[in-house]
Nucleic acid binder design. Structure first.
Lengths: 247, 247
DNA sequence: TGATTTTTTGAATGTTTTTGAAAGAAAAGG
DNA sequence: CCTTTTCTTTCAAAAACATTCAAAAAATCA
């Protein structure tokens, strides 16, 4: 990993998160403490950020007040924010599973040049990964025309031959009682298998998914890590789950 | 490898990723460290990039990438004609293999509502098949970023578990002596396997492919049916082959 | 064609930059 | 207060660097 790449990554992180932790950068970039410190020092000298105890923070936010139009795209912004946090979890040299879907797709540009291997079931995601020059694999199987995801026995058995450091999945519903659900039963089986084959499973969910219940269950809430924005605005029920994290 | 070729490759890389590593360029281009350094130095003097420790980074984001689109429109008419003839060969209830590539992609709209099952290695073709509501399967495997085709052992073993009534393939070269060739050795293995697993293998080729020889052989001429326009305008050598058919 | 010049290439050299670890100082939190 | 974490400084190893030189390839000229 080159100096330029690391520093670029750090600044990209600061565009979304107001502060970055030194330790997180170490794992995400696979570099030593000294190296990250030097990067932070150089970026501070260049006036790109300000160092704080334990990491760094961004200087000035160019935009401050969310306008009316921005509120309409707030949903999209939230997705980008979640994707950013998810991408930051990925350490160097990792092998990850990337679910089909637009939420997980947002992670792809954030993974360029990061030396990760990605396995996906999403045809569109596979295409985007190839464009981004990321080492990518697609699991074989029948293609559902609605979501362009591969499903079926071939996909599941392909998954069972692999293991992932992280799995990143989307969901349609999160419910304290009914767990994580999705409309399509075949896709649910794939998601469940992916979770079983991964060290850590991470579900990316915006606020609209909480309290919703869809057709097919694929995991219980405490089987996965859920990252979401605006956790504080949700029902206090969800505060009891330590595995639901605010970005 | 010519200097010009190397430098062009380096700049193409930089259009895709913001930074390139010197070591990666060494292996990708098969040139020595000194040579790559000289190339980077020259390109920097020419104002095409900026050198950084360990490689180089791009200056400003170039926007247009006409090469792919240009290629697609170049032989468009001829390709459409071939695709039409190929699609006409497919009987009802058939199971066919569709190679990755733009030539075979043209068959997809002609297969809509035809009650066929299609297996493909092309990510983009898989997407188009899903859009066209055709029952489609993609074979799992590593995705080559250049062509967005799946390759490798997983793809080949997936193929060996299937059988096709027809396989439709593209090619880069057709030569009386050197057979059918393609630039990528891994893709060649996939093509060969697909031919073996099919009752009839059909190669779609426009006139520009005849007489050309690429890197990796995937079949002899008489192993497949070749359909092409303008057969009469080709070298008379090819008239001796009954399996080369004019559309 | 053959000889000569020019260009290109890869290896060898020594120098500079980058990196990770260690040790002690400073800050944070109980 | 003490303990833990984070920070700075220092140092040696590793990686990347520019430079030089001779061999190989290409171009030029006779």
């Amino acid at each position: 990993m080159l100096t330029e790449e690391r520093q670029r990554f750090i600044l990209e992180q600061l565009e979304q998160t107001p502060v970055v932790k030194l330790k997180d950068l170490m794992t995400a970039l696979g570099a030593s403490e000294s190296t990250i410190r030097r990067d932070l020092g150089e970026l501070e000298d260049a006036g790109k950020l300000r160092r704080i105890h334990g990491g760094a923070e961004r200087l000035a936010k160019t935009q401050s007040e969310p306008s009316v139009q921005e509120k309409a795209t707030q949903h999209l912004m939230a997705k980008a924010q979640i994707a950013k946090a998810a991408a930051a979890m990925v350490p160097a040299h990792a092998c990850i599973f990337l679910d089909a879907g637009t939420t997980t797709a947002q992670m792809i540009p954030l993974l360029t040049g990061r030396d990760v291997t990605v396995v996906t079931t999403g045809v569109d995601n596979a295409s985007a990964l190839a464009d981004a020059n990321i080492e990518a694999y697609i699991l074989g199987g029948k293609i559902k025309s609605a979501t362009k995801a591969t499903v079926g026995a071939e996909t599941v058995s392909g998954l069972q031959k692999r293991h992932f450091d992280y799995a990143f999945l989307g969901t349609n519903g999160i419910h304290p009682k009914f767990g994580l659900t999705t409309p399509d039963a075949e896709e649910a089986v794939v998601k469940t298998t992916a979770i079983n084959q991964s060290h850590t499973a991470v579900v990316l969910a915006d606020a609209s998914k909480f309290g919703e219940v869809s057709n097919a269950l694929f995991a219980k809430i405490n089987q996965v890590v859920i990252i979401t924005p605006e956790l504080s605005q949700l029902s206090p029920i969800y505060a009891d789950y330590p595995n639901i994290q605010e970005v």
